[in-house]
Amino acid sequence: MLDLRLRQVSFSYSDGQVLHDINLSVGAGEMVGLLGPNGSGKTTLLKLASGILKPGQGEVRLDGADLRLMSRKSVARSVAVMPQQFHMPFAFNVGEMVMLGRTPFIRTLAGETDVDREVVSTALEMAGIIELKERRFDELSGGERQKVILAMTLAQQPGLLLLDEPTLHLDITHQVEILERVRSLNREHGLTVIAAMHDLNLASLYFDRLVLLKEGRIVADGTPAEVITEDILYKVFAAPVIVEPHPITGDPHVVIMPQGSADSRPDNAVS
């Protein structure tokens, strides 16, 4: 349970400014989805939130403490990050991979303790991969790997979990499974979650609050119903879409239209 505040944050890479004057406050226990086109600054915002990038201007505070003044180790003890992908060149098995999540807690030369082993077991259980423990990470499918990385972040026992497009490259079964697990961690354990999301419909279904970025600025921030509207999406993505209520949950559901089909909407045909 941690809160995160970005105040007037700007950030530039050497080839240009990526974020402009971002003010974002995420309360403890919230589950927030970051949306926006490619290059809108979602990943950069997550990197600022994890402290591996420092803001050019403004400040990022984690539970009131300035991230710049915290050591990597103390940040890693409360903030866990699931990046878009990990490349693992060595043949670690799943148990060993998840144990890597204990790195910020393991004392030099002392090795892992019973507490570490217990936390790893719990993390494997919460990610639903107990049975994969002895399997080699590099022989798993993409969906299984993503669950292993989730377990590794949980082994950090974080208060804030940052996810960068956790459902990318996954089939729909695994997309749903990952988001279900993350949501139950949020609901049952009070874990604060911020996730960059590509898929608008999944974001609408699983997140309570959505923040929409365009060219490094926040253009909308609110419930899915407030953010996912035809007008806003057209302004941000420049692609015409239809937004309808999800047949079961009632959450906004985005229907993508192929080009040239703008006039063939069913209600147009009727009228």
């Binding site: 994890s50 990597r72 890693a76 990046p83 790195t103």
Partner: peptide, 25 residues
Amino acid sequence: ARAFAHHLNAFSLGEEGAAYLGIEV
């Protein structure tokens, strides 16, 4: 080298991954 062995394990995730695990890369 042995004292930093668990840091090397974290480095096998790459520099970014190691940083997320608390390593001063």
